[in-house]
Write a protein that binds this DNA or RNA. Structure first.
Length: 593
RNA sequence: GGUUCCGUAGCUCAGUUGGACAGAGCAACAGCCUUCUAAGCUGUGGGUCGCGCGUUCGAAUCGCGCCGGAAUCACCA
């Protein structure tokens, strides 16, 4: 069915040509939806047209309005307030739209086919020395949701994870376990593997700090003490052994990493995220060296006397960036050059998104420039989705001080709150334990996910635990509740939903249809800007509008049969959109709650 | 200091390409369940959109300059 806003644009162009002999492109016509406080569906702003009409704003709007309403039966009327022409769309159009496009289960979605654009998206990217925390949750939820949104807008999406499984930080946990662990394992301690390893990471830090203090007391400067503390020297030694593939160190490393992976797997599965492919840094950290060497030969990079390789970025307003250490080993940047190259060759992406916090803005800025310098024409296909930090009401999270919100604990807490709330309301008493638990899980996770995804990714956000467990207002459970209400009505209205199209829509009904009319644009915009919050806020508005409708009008005891059938259809498609929209946020919706 | 990002109600956040008196939720107060799920709905109060200048018929939105905050500028990742 023809998009009515497009139609309005082209009709307006026609009107302007006929009335004032001016030809202008359609995108010059400003069409917006009419604000709530005025009567109408779409509004044309006529101020920009005054130079063609050479009339007052009111006269221009009136002339345009009467021409357009005369010409088309899709428009049923208009009114003019100041320089704004408010157009009414005919009942017929909205009814056909409801009975046509909106019925489709894939309304708003663009199908993916073989030739569709290929997008690779990297997210999560955890370190294997400690469990996941709130910051990782934002990363994972964003990455996963964006992958869903891209898919919905017709992209072939490949989700990848890059696990940072090697380096000095891992050695710290390993060393502390070796020294103080007494062969403790996840089995023997009953701890989740990632938490167990994290415990030794903290243990290392405590010992390290106390050693620094002793050295400072002995008269060393803090800086000296930080490099000379015995325990850090041991960790460095362990890293050297790791690099030299010392069998003992490698065995320990593998054992502890596997504990972590098992723990991560549980956290991921609970979060509902998954990957098509997982890369491990231990397998990719040497990549990029050859490319950098070629860059030196080609003269776009330069080598210092000590053998280290650098990129000179002063042309770009930046400084020098190291790409290979003097001992010939790679740094993070080198590795990313290598993995990007490898991924492009293997997958041939049209775009590659890195979901990484804004603390790495500089890194990705440099990465693009370096790749461009090296002559890769796909350098501009890389996109850093830079999201803001998650802060607590009392300030920043500090992982070494234990001032973090642990991912697993948080999920537990959300589910517990959902359980308490539900038990208080007592709505699921005829469900068995398993069914109830499933709903507590859905609601708890829905609250958490929505709370995080409703915020614009690029902004820093404050996570207030008190606020996050509030399930009223602009929250995931509010939308889930709306869905459950809808499903309940649908179940009761079965058999009364044969809608023929002979009906008069009231303002609330039109308003709902008009909101759903926008859904494809919302998906498009959120895909273009990689911003799930647009969908979250759209769903909230829709749910709120539905709840008002639900309060003001009866569906199952509508006056006429045809009206009831229309309302059942209307409500069903609202439910479908809530379902498909929440699915893009990675949130499940319950039949009951 | 350089670069990037942010500054909207007491708090948390919306506000597509500039458009009609700046919107929600939470918190506070007052109402609405013998009727489709009250995790809902309705109402009241609450703002110099950080400040100033400029562009424009029109600026929370665009430009410049300040003020305030965040991140980053390692032979760490």
């Amino acid at each position: 069915m023809q998009r009515i806003d497009q139609f309005i644009r082209s009709l307006a162009v026609e009107a302007i040509r006929d009335s004032w002999s001016a030809t202008l492109p359609e995108d010059q016509i400003q069409v917006q939806k009419t604000r709530r406080e005025f009567i109408g569906d779409f509004t044309i702003v006529v101020f920009p047209l005054l130079r063609f009409s050479r009339l007052s704003p009111e006269e221009t709007a009136n002339a345009l309005g009467s021409y357009m309403v005369d010409q088309s039966e899709m428009l049923s009327g208009f009114n003019v307030i100041k320089g704004f022409l408010n157009l009414l769309v005919s009942q017929k159009y909205w009814i056909e739209f409801l009975n046509g496009d909106l019925r489709s289960a894939v309304y708003g979605f663009t199908p993916v086919h073989e030739g569709s654009q290929k997008v690779m998206i990297e997210f999560s990217s955890p370190n294997t020395n400690k469990p996941l925390h709130l910051g990782h949750i934002r990363n994972n939820l964003l990455g996963y949701s964006i992958s869903r949104i891209l898919k919905a807008s017709g992209k072939q999406v490949r989700k990848v994870n890059l696990v940072n499984d090697r380096g000095i930080h891992i050695c710290k946990s390993m060393l502390a376990w070796q020294k103080f662990g007494d062969d403790e394992t996840p089995e023997s301690s009953g701890m989740k593997g990632d938490h167990l390893v994290g415990k030794y990471y903290i243990k290392f830090d405590q010992v390290y700090k106390s050693q620094i203090e002793s050295l400072v007391e002995e008269g060393k400067t803090r800086k000296e003490a930080e490099t000379a503390a015995p325990v850090i020297e041991e960790a460095r030694e362990m890293l050297r052994k790791w690099e030299a593939e010392d069998p003992e160190v490698r065995a320990l490393w593998e054992m502890m990493n596997n504990w972590v992976y098992e723990g991560f797997e549980r956290t991921y599965s609970r979060l509902g995220v998954s990957f098509d492919q997982t890369y491990y840094e231990s397998q990719t950290f040497k990549l990029g060296k050859e490319i950098v060497q070629k860059g030196v030969e080609a003269g776009v990079l330069y080598k210092k006397e000590d053998g280290s390789v650098w990129a000179d970025l002063t042309d770009e307003g930046l400084d020098q960036k190291l790409l290979l250490r003097s001992d010939g080993t790679s740094v993070y940047m080198t590795q990313d050059v290598g993995t990007a190259h490898q991924r492009y060759n293997e997958y041939g992406f049209d775009s590659h998104i890195y979901v990484v916090g804004n603390e790495q803005n500089y890194h990705f800025q440099v990465l693009s420039i370096v790749l461009k310098k090296l002559g890769f024409e796909w350098a501009d296909k890389l996109y850093h989705l830079s999201y803001g930090m998650v802060e607590l009401p009392e300030g920043k999270m500090k992982s070494r001080e234990g001032k973090v919100v642990d991912a697993d604990d948080l999920m537990d807490e959300m589910e517990t709150t959902a359980r308490q709330m539900s038990e208080e309301l007592g709505k699921l008493e005829d469900y068995n334990g398993e069914e109830r638990n499933s709903i507590y899980r859905q609601v708890g996770m829905g609250a958490l996910k929505y709370f995080i995804l409703k915020v614009d990714p690029k902004k820093n956000m404050t996570f207030d635990p008190r606020e996050s467990v509030d399930f009223n207002g602009n929250t995931g459970p509010f939308i889930q509740y709306t869905y459950a209400r809808i499903r309940s009505v649908i179940r009761k209205g079965k058999g009364h939903d044969k809608f023929a199209g002979e009906v008069h829509l009231n303002d609330k009904e039109i308003s709902l249809i008009r909101m759903m009319y926008e859904y494809p644009d919302i998906i498009g915009e959120s895909s273009r800007t990689l911003n799930p919050s647009l969908i979250a806020n759209f769903l909230y508005e829709l749910a709120k509008e539905f709840n008002q409708f639900y309060h003001d009008y009866s569906i199952l005891s509508a006056e006429k049969k045809e009206e009831m059938a229309m309302r059942l259809l209307l409500v069903e498609v609202i439910g479908q959109i809530i379902d498909s929209g929440m699915d893009m946020l990675g949130i499940e919706v319950p039949e009951r709650m």
